[in-house]
Design a protein around this nucleic acid. Structure first.
Length: 445
DNA sequence: GATGGCCTAATTAGGACTTCCGGTGT
DNA sequence: CACACCGGAAGTCCTAATTAGGCCAT
């Protein structure tokens, strides 16, 4: 089994290898943001320069040698290692399980450097109805202010978490590194096939209603992320309840463990129950109850049904890929209704993928490609503006092309590329409609 | 020596939880 | 009885903003 560091190296160097290979030398600009959310690094041990949200395209289009990651790598590796080595009763720990969800590793067929599609966070907004009392600071006694060692101007109010109403500085989530809010974390889980719908699932995606199928497991995952081993659902629930006040979440009355996002990214990937029908069955076999009562059995109980995941890790990737390709394509879908609203980071993470493939032959999930290509927004994407979506869409397209071409002749014209990207790798050309939060109304429910 | 630019460390405010608790409802 | 759920209160952690001070060049 590959060590994490090996995976990291291979993964992080993938782009470089591609660019160095003659076959792919025509793809200088198809450098998708190689920056999974920092929290993903914390699980996987990956560490790299992060630059999602407000995109400096010039920067994005050059391969960053992980300058920040250089110092973060070891730390992150250690952290990830410690995470993964934390005691867990089951052979496949939740932590490992979840870490794998962010390490492209399993059955599905995306084997590209695509780590995510990020969407510019520009215009992320937050709760406007949150009271703001800037005068509170100005009313401090003068003597108190002067008693400070250093005089200080009244500082600007710090940007808050991106909630549906407050405008947040573009780079808020770039600088900080691994800040991942709970609601973001939940959205991540909801877009993760290995967790959704097993531990968390949509009950009404259109309305943003989801259920914590296994509240304890989700809380534990959250605790892992926050390095709070004592995290439990009660604590996490308190944080969730704070979201009520801030207009990020609503509680679905009468249903336990069921919450509702007040708004959602437009381009969010929705994993429905059908996507993981088998897993769902497995889970249901364990829980035997999906009506309002969570399955809070011990994680090991659930994980025992996830042996396939464990097994897959022990098998060569190619084999996994083949077996997975037999499965019915995923039924991931994207929210159809393009409703204007605020904006928020969106991560369209490829589903479980095999990270190391022989020859790194890119194999793109046709389903995902279709999904992306069918998005009107993606169709109108330009290589600038919020270029990450564009680039990823292009990458997927180009990878698909290469995939087809590789089957005909490896050294043939497999390096075709979309003209815009090819001719102007880093050029900012036009404005792209940014993915937006979709405010969810009661009518959706 | 004065001035300005740059960098860094220290300081601080504030956001986002986390922890604890008592209570209610199912 | 267990669990979900609620919300107040206080605390912690982390980050961004701000500033002073050092260094260097002019």
């Amino acid at each position: 089994m590959l060590q994490q560091s090996e995976l990291i190296f291979d993964f992080a160097s993938d782009h470089v290898n591609m660019s160095q290979l003659g076959v792919y030398s025509d793809y200088p600009a198809v450098i998708v943001e190689q920056v999974p959310h920092p929290h993903l690094f914390s699980y996987t041990g990956l560490a790299c320069e992060q630059s999602h949200t407000e995109v400096d395209h010039q920067q994005l289009l050059k391969v960053e040698p992980c300058e920040s990651g250089e110092e973060e790598t070891m730390e992150t590796l250690v952290a990830a290692d410690s995470l993964l080595s934390m005691d867990c009763p089951d052979a496949l720990s939740l932590e490992q399980h979840y870490s794998q969800t962010f390490l492209p590793s399993l059955g599905d067929v995306i084997t590209t450097p695509v780590t995510q599609v990020t969407v510019s966070a520009e215009g992320i907004v937050g709760a406007v109805d949150k009271p703001q009392w800037p005068l509170l600071h100005t009313k401090k006694p003068v003597a108190q202010l002067q008693s400070k060692k250093r005089g200080r101007k009244p500082r600007h109010r710090r940007a808050e978490s991106p909630t549906p109403d407050i405008i947040v500085k573009k780079d808020k989530y770039n600088k900080g590194g691994n800040t991942l809010y709970l609601w973001q974390f939940l959205m991540e889980l909801l877009q993760d096939r290995q967790v959704c719908p097993r531990y968390i699932k949509w009950t009404n995606p259109d309305a943003g209603i989801f259920k914590l199928v296994n509240s304890k497991a989700v809380a534990r995952l959250w605790g892992k992320h926050k390095n709070k081993p004592d995290m439990n659902y009660e604590t996490m629930g308190r944080a969730l309840r704070y979201y009520y006040q801030r207009g990020i979440l609503n509680k679905v009355e009468g249903q336990r463990l069921v919450y509702q996002f007040t708004s959602l990214p437009k381009d969010m990937i929705y994993i429905t129950d059908g996507d993981n029908a088998k897993e769902e069955e497995d889970y249901d076999d364990n829980s035997g109850n999906d009506e309002g009562v969570s399955d809070d059995s011990d994680d090991s109980t659930i994980l025992s049904s996830d042996q396939s995941v464990d097994d897959e890790d022990l098998h060569p990737p190619q084999k996994k890929m083949l077996s997975s390709s037999v499965r019915a394509p995923a039924t991931q879908r994207t929210r159809p209704a393009p409703r204007p609203s605020a904006q928020r980071d969106t991560v369209l993470r490829p589903t479980s993928t095999s990270l190391i493939q022989e020859q790194h032959l890119p194999i793109v999930s046709a389903e995902m490609l279709r999904t992306l290509q069918n998005l009107p927004k993606v169709q109108s994407l330009q290589p600038a503006g919020h270029a990450s979506v564009f680039r990823t869409a292009q990458l997927l397209g180009s990878l698909c092309e290469r995939q087809a071409a590789a089957q005909v002749a490896v050294d043939s014209n497999c390096a075709r590329e979309t003209p815009n990207e090819k001719s102007h790798p880093g050029q900012k050309t036009s404005q792209v409609e940014t993915p937006q939060l979709v405010p969810l109304t009661s009518s959706d429910q």
